[in-house]
Design a protein around this nucleic acid. Structure first.
Length: 501
RNA sequence: GGCCCCAUCGUCUAGUGGUUAGGACACCAGGUUUUCAACCUGGAGGCCCGGGUUCGAUUCCCGGUGGGGCUGCCA
């Protein structure tokens, strides 16, 4: 039988990078084994449904290019199915009806807590004292069901069993059934809980490997009991380590990420209630392939551990669950930026132009040939497309105007030209205007050096003045290239600086 | 609290019953550059602690400590 995996997010909020990484690992596993990758939306809790979340999930996956072979399948459209299996589980003696009200449950918990039980459960012991089909006479159960009284279906956890499974990443994991809760499988509103829907779907869809977050380890024994109750063979399990906060305390949270300026989404998310917007890697100017590389490295490494940058094809070829670590990982944003820079540098000129154009437009710069080329000059000097666009915009809007009033005195001081420099710049402009045809980057650079030497000026000093005049910065791309590209614009700005002095 | 998972430089990690414990980001120094990047070279920096097993443990076992997860008619 071929490999079949699924990514099964719940639309209770935006898809964060941990989820994308889970999707990525599932996807890589499927592609590596030429198997099937299913997208399933686990929307069985109507009360926690967040508008736009499902769309965010789908768009996120699309943007990074994790395409699915089947789906999205929404569990909310299959409730009848789960209901049927829940009742079958009762028939088989692996589940039972329970009629306890919320108040009764709360009272039970209160009483137990008062008696010194820190985490009261509906379990092997307590179920004997509650109102359910284990304690009530058969006729009464039937009467209550027939009268339409609300009920839930709970898993019947056996008293003394060891439940264990072999995790593909962690090895054997054991649980004592005594520690388990008689989890609700079917809610009183007729919807299944995660546990039931998940197991039913995984079985029906032929899922062979469940690759999911570590937070699911504690509920795996519950799932195993359901498989057993239904007489189904459980899939293989692989529990991925969590992505932790960069400062070492807890799981990566939205609030903290916001504070640190670190994206936790792949694409922007706007909270439908608060209206608060959080940019994703996409908006910050990351390339989708780079994002996948960044996320893959969070817990996984190719066999050749010396390499950090690799293509999707290489990832697919070398991917295996054995190479996933068991300990939690923190996102190193500095390294993420570096990885993106590496990808930026490897882009062909054509691809780069295509990628950077929307970012130029976003900051009000027309993405014409001139600005695109200017952006290209900043390529090795930035980590993201957004940084590049910002540089281009800054240089576009720069005017070498003396504005002592606005407090830029210190900045302007460095451009104050002495008579000699003024003369040098004038000479340079004169030459340039007369030789526009032959003014290549190298020639321009040489000419500046020549003019500086003739006047016993340091070439570097003169170049700094020119750089300031045309870009308003003390550093940037090679001056010759910049001048050559900017041409008239540069001449105009240098002239303006001379005039201002 | 209970149950479960985890533990190699600051971070992501490779690795082994005997290794100078390897790489990457970040950091420092040098080279290159008009400059800033990029790039090249070099440097500093790590096996959580305590027992045990063993001729020998970073590696295997146990305990501790630390970190994390779960403990809902959430997923």
């Amino acid at each position: 039988m071929g490999v079949c995996v699924r990514f099964a997010p719940s639309p209770t909020g935006p898809l964060h990078i941990g989820g994308v990484r889970t999707a990525l690992f599932n996807w890589l596993f499927a592609r590596h084994h030429q198997g099937k990758f299913i997208l399933r939306i686990e929307d069985t809790d109507r009360s926690r449904y967040v508008p736009g979340a499902e769309q965010h999930i789908i768009e996120s996956l699309r943007w990074v290019g994790l395409t699915w072979d089947e789906g999205p399948i929404r569990q909310s459209t299959r409730t009848e199915l789960y209901r049927r299996y829940a009742h079958e589980l009762v028939q088989r003696g692996y589940a039972y009806y329970a009629f306890d009200t919320e108040e009764e449950l709360e009272r039970m918990r209160q009483d137990l807590r008062a008696a010194g039980v820190p985490n009261p459960q509906y379990n092997v012991y307590t179920r004997q004292y509650m109102r359910n089909s284990l304690t009530l006479p058969e006729e009464e159960v039937q009467r209550r069901l027939a009268s339409g009284e609300p009920y839930v279906i709970r898993l019947y956890v056996p008293a003394d069993r060891e439940i264990r499974f072999h995790d593909q990443i962690r090895g054997w994991i054991r649980f004592q059934s005594r520690e388990l809760d008689d989890k609700i499988l079917l809610k009183s509103d007729g919807f299944p809980t995660y546990h039931l829907a998940n197991v039913v779907d995984d079985h029906l869809m032929g899922v062979t490997h469940v690759i999911r977050g570590e937070e699911w380890i504690p509920s795996t024994p519950i799932h195993l009991l359901i498989y057993e109750g239904m007489g189904w063979t459980p899939p293989e399990f692989a529990h991925l380590p969590l992505i932790l906060r960069p400062d070492g305390k807890g799981k990566l949270s939205k609030r903290e990420a916001l504070q640190l300026g670190i994206p936790i989404y792949v694409i922007q998310w706007k909270d439908p209630h608060t209206g608060e917007e959080m940019p994703g890697f996409r908006e910050l100017g990351f390339l989708p392939e780079a994002v996948l590389n960044i996320l893959a490295l969070l817990g996984w490494h190719p066999p050749d551990a010396q390499r950090e940058i690799f293509t999707l094809q290489e990832m697919i070829q070398t991917f295996s669950l054995e190479r996933i670590g068991a300990s939690g990982a923190r996102l190193n944003y500095e390294k993420a930026l570096w990885i993106n820079q590496q990808y930026l540098q490897r882009l062909s000129e054509e691809a780069f132009r295509q990628k950077v154009a929307p970012f130029l437009e976003a900051v009000g710069v027309p993405p014409d040939a001139f600005h695109l080329e200017l952006a290209n000059l900043y390529r090795t000097r930035a980590h993201t497309l957004r940084e590049i666009a910002d540089e281009v915009r800054a240089i576009r809007e720069w005017t070498p105007v003396r504005s002592i009033q606005s407090g830029e005195v210190s900045a302007l001081e460095s451009v104050t030209l002495n008579a000699c420099e003024q003369d040098a710049l004038q000479a340079f402009l004169r030459w340039w205007r007369a030789h526009t045809g032959e003014a290549t980057p190298d020639v321009l650079t040489q000419k500046i050096r020549e003019i500086a030497r003739e006047r016993e000026l340091k070439p570097g000093q003169l170049m700094l003045k020119i750089r300031w005049a045309i870009s308003g910065k003390r550093q940037g791309p090679p001056l010759g290239a910049l001048l050559h590209l900017m041409k008239d614009k540069a001449i105009e700005r240098i002239a303006k600086l001379i005039e201002q002095t």
